[in-house]
Amino acid sequence: MTFLDDFLIRAALAGLGVAIAAAPLGCLVVWRRMAYFGDATAHAAILGVALALTFQTSVFAGVLAVSLAMAAVISGLSGRGYAMDTLLGVLAHSAIAFGLVAVSFLSGVRIDLMAYLFGDILAVSKTDLGVIWGGAVLVLLLIRWRWSALLTTTLNPDLAHAAGLDPKREQLVLTVALALVVAVAIKVIGALLIAAMLIIPAAAARPFASTPERMALIAGGIGALSVLGGLQASYHFDTPTGPSIVCVSAVLFIAASLSDLVGRRIGRR
């Protein structure tokens, strides 16, 4: 596949993979008000990078393991005295601080910290591309399989119980999916901005959607548009790619909110 020799095409494909996997998951994160949960899981990824480099395993495996551990710690600690936002504030920032300190001990290895904080989509290799799309497809399959149960649980845990579903199990599915997305997205968008790829396209899609499925589809479209637009902008203006992608999706979010506002004004008249 010679077309994959072009680094821009690899970058675009990597970004699209992340955008598509992040869309339905991002919607669930928004509906369940788990935005900070996503943030904390993503920030823990830096610690995962440090551990992976220390033990010389793949960054993907290290990030996945630490993100899962982080999610487990949050789930375990929730409802034990501290409000959820306090708990997540403590954990998210501690995770990134410990991660940065841990990386500084790795004096023997020269690593580009910025690449892990903000992503390095232009350096995506063919192997990376395989990992990203493998992970993305896995996340999509997982969410598609549990979609109805996840929606029911999101709506009301008691409704799920009465239908014979276990909300705890669905929470676990969501946690695993989130850790997977973080692990595949760190190369593309970086630990600090992963949550943006989850939340901004989903939020931008809300005004145009009448059902949950449509919202996920539109979010996927907006995410894909952000990736392609961000790559273009970064190429033309020589700006960092990850932040450029997030900027484009933020602009799309503002446009969506404004058009919704205008639409309502006209509708009311």
């Binding site: 709506l155 809300r206 009448s210 059902t211």
Partner: peptide
């Protein structure tokens, strides 16, 4: 088989949901 009608059901404003779609939860 249990049919459950909860005391109240809060639907987050970020979740678009038609009546028809709601009726297909959890089974189509």
């Amino acid at each position: 088989r249990i049919g459950y009608v909860p005391q109240k059901l809060h639907i987050d404003p970020t979740l678009p949901l038609t009546v028809r779609r709601f009726l297909s939860l959890p089974d189509r």
